[in-house]
Design a protein around this nucleic acid. Sequence first.
DNA 1: TTGAAAGCGATACCAC
DNA 2: GTGGTATCGCTTTCAA
Lengths: 326, 326
Amino acid sequence: MSVTIKDIAKQAGVSYSTVSKALRDSPLVKPPTKKRIIAIAEQLGYKPNVAARNLVSRRSQTIGVVWPTIERVAHSALITSLNQRLEAINYTTLISINDMKTAFSTFNQYPVDAILAFNDSYSPIDYTSSVPIVTYGIAGQHSPFLTIDVNRKKAIQIAVEQLIQLGHQHISYIGDLSGDFLQEEKVKGFKNALELFQLKPFADQTIKVQGLEQYDGYIAARKLLGKKSRPTAIISGSHDLSRGILQAIYENQLSVPVDISLISYDNIPERHHLDIALSTVGVPIDTITKTLVDALMHTIEGKAVPQTIYLEPELNLASSCQALTL
Amino acid sequence: MSVTIKDIAKQAGVSYSTVSKALRDSPLVKPPTKKRIIAIAEQLGYKPNVAARNLVSRRSQTIGVVWPTIERVAHSALITSLNQRLEAINYTTLISINDMKTAFSTFNQYPVDAILAFNDSYSPIDYTSSVPIVTYGIAGQHSPFLTIDVNRKKAIQIAVEQLIQLGHQHISYIGDLSGDFLQEEKVKGFKNALELFQLKPFADQTIKVQGLEQYDGYIAARKLLGKKSRPTAIISGSHDLSRGILQAIYENQLSVPVDISLISYDNIPERHHLDIALSTVGVPIDTITKTLVDALMHTIEGKAVPQTIYLEPELNLASSCQALTL
DNA sequence: TTGAAAGCGATACCAC
DNA sequence: GTGGTATCGCTTTCAA
């Protein structure tokens, strides 16, 4: 049997309700008493019983994260950052890798204060939950939840704009992954931008990939660079793709940015870990997770309204881009 | 406020303790009564309050999984399978991606019945936990916990033995990743086996990789195959590496198994998803997770002893290997 | 400033 | 078979 507040109360010679207050740092307990109680608690190795606390407070200080696609690495960094943030405000993160429906059901019977669902499809989440839900991903049409969405279209558009300003006319986009809605958004953004800036279409505008890993970027870029005519600039759909693309470029005895300028989607710290400083567009992970946590807290307090928050991407111009030299 | 057993009791006109029994399918309640109560519960949308249940039963039906390395994909499939198995026996899986120490502390104050820790280092886990712990990974020297370890050395040894039986003399191992203890075990197994079978050493016996992804396998294999003399057989440290290796072999206009035989570590269903049926050595994921779950249940019931369970790898011979033709 | 007591929702034991 | 009741560990009024 582990130690309870009653044990502490006995030791301290006070009532156990006083202990409860002291441990919760209530102002209703005299500082010296409080100090003594906390000392004893520590010494006894007291750990509060969460079940009991949840029972009475009707709060669990736990966020349920629905993350059905662990096998795809994309969100790992996001989850890591999210976890840290929640931890900092005394929340526990509980991850479920089951499908939405199962996970919702689990979390609804488990004591979580809110659910964060990673949603990478357009299909509406048709599930009623008594626990408040925040969604990260594609903004659905009439989502009944607060949804956080990254403006991926605009991100790519910004990249295109930047390259055009630098004088580029032949720009390829590597990262067309069919079946992945998040990726398709980016492709749309690319095509929109080309139209918008009235760039004349050329052969290899969008390059399909099999996946989003370094390997896929490498394969795609090699195919692209193997041809007689090649673009002067490339936009890549993800950081990992970019790594592979860089490799392929080097292999072709080409140089970045002299021969080819490169802008990568994804705004993560790892962009500094390459031989060359990578230009990127995207929302910084920190911004995303901060927004998510804020949204969750608001939702828990019942202050959130079903709406979509679009996060605006930022451009980080670095040495992987330069003006086209004629 | 959500519905409780008292609400059901009122509706059904019975005492709430009867409801409790009925809902737990106790034989002490007449079937018709039981049926009626269950119907009402369903109709009211009753969800048991886990906190209250935990409080009294002193069980939470929850396993805490410590998985600090989500960013490395290797264990994803394992976690997925584990989660399914636990779900099947009414256990909830709670994943923490914090470091061991933090995670243990969280789980110790959170109601979990047992902790499963993924440990990929030799360093002993110096943490006392009142919650029972099962470890998966390298068997420590004097681990105070039940540890499940895969005999990786032996796996590679079996692969070598098989290839030798097929007449191969020049065998390379791709998958030497410094700093990763699990990988180093495999390299050791390879070297041991070569000695054991008295194979004369040749130049490119072990090939270092930067990571364990397809890309890394591709790069390593390309380097290996670019030289004048090449091995007649390759053993690969992981499924993903193998995919890249296959790619590099094809690119060199070589064929598997005619020119090169290939055996891959990792025994996962995906081995059937390639152009060629891949020979593999390793413990099937299902076996691993079954063992883990059994170990956890035993531990929870207090029937487990601190010991190491070694899982023995299996060889699956498929068309990616053939006898050496002279 | 402290203590007593009610109660959160469910289980389990003991009567009836 | 069913109902009453103590109990789990803690928070929260309400009195003292």
